[in-house]
Design a binder for these strands. Structure first.
Lengths: 184, 184
DNA sequence: CTCCTCATGTAAGCGGTTACATGATTTA
DNA sequence: TAAATCATGTAACCGCTTACATGAGGAG
């Protein structure tokens, strides 16, 4: 079976015990969403495919009167997860409208570019705040690998906010130069 | 007309003079690709739509014996570009397989997690090298806004590489602890 | 009894990539 | 004259989002 994208999220989410599609979605929204999102419309059909391929099976556990199907990894599923983790490829895709605007910022007066930068800074600051909130309310039993990645997010956003501030200051101090357009 | 995504790239690419679809694609591949990619299959149809909407027009310039259509911004097109640049929204989307692997890294022994981190570091270092090469070979007349964004890319990747190195060192020094699985 | 959360799903559509098709012009 | 590059385009497909549908169980 060709695993890719959602498959790895699901396989990974099941690595420490059975989870349902709903629970996986919750996990994703609380954690991987920032660098790898997934929706129900991806998760549920993919659970089917993974089950058909024998990588996961419904865990026949005692149901607590909730209609719900939890899946667990089969040996084949765990092997697949480990194979993926050990494989070298690790693509990277970004769509950052803020950077795109900054890139074309010389189409508007310096003033506006300055405002633009401050807006970007504020947005990233808001994300940073949310990440810090997540860190504060982190349960005890969370794996270190999760903490590592969360710290990545926090420290990255700290860096971005500082970078925006630096750029904004520069755009501010140079004020008085030629307006409009050619800011080179 | 509903402008979004490619529209802004095109409008932005035309802000300093007429460009053809081919030239826009080249510009994208050399610069915005890292934070906003675009393919021919997006660019050419979008040029049509923008022209139909009156935001751009074919620049009837003296052709240098090349079959080619360059477009330039109409006043409406420039207004649209500036409106977008001044609008507050600036979405952000990331798909980072490296982080996803790190997130699930406690499914393999510490050794493998260490290797994984080093691989990630090497990949990001390679991107960093390419960005530095671009910076070295930057033409004179490039707008400062482009330089700013390139510097962002370079400094960001410097930060990432350092972060990976730190994590890898930690995974290395703790060696001797419990293998396999529960790395907390 | 009502509302909220739990829980599983699907249809339609959008944004994007990949692969292909075509031909002109320049360079070796 | 062959190969590379310039130049414009499209069809098929894929991954993903949005919106909707349905119903059960728990909370007030």
């Amino acid at each position: 079976m060709k695993t890719s994208g959602v498959s790895h999220v699901i396989l990974g989410a099941l690595r420490h015990g059975p989870r349902s599609g709903y629970e996986i979605k919750q996990l994703v929204d609380k954690s991987t969403r920032f660098f790898w999102a997934a929706s129900y419309a991806q998760i549920y059909p993919e659970l089917r495919r993974l089950a058909d391929a024998g990588l996961i099976v419904p865990a026949g556990e005692p149901s607590d009167s909730r209609r719900r199907v939890r899946y667990r990894l089969t040996p084949a599923g765990r092997a697949q997860l480990e194979r993926w983790l050990r494989s070298p490829a690790a693509g990277y895709e970004l769509r950052d409208e803020g950077l795109l605007k900054l890139f074309f910022a010389d189409a508007v007066p310096r003033r506006d570019a300055h405002v633009l930068t401050r807006q970007l800074q504020a947005e990233r600051q808001a994300i940073l705040d949310r990440l810090r909130e997540i860190e504060r309310t982190l349960p005890e039993d969370v794996p270190t690998s999760h903490v590592d990645v969360l710290r990545y997010g926090i420290e990255f956003h700290e860096w971005v906010v500082a970078w925006c501030a630096r750029l904004a200051d520069r755009l501010d101090s140079d004020e008085g130069d030629a307006e409009e357009g050619t800011s080179r």
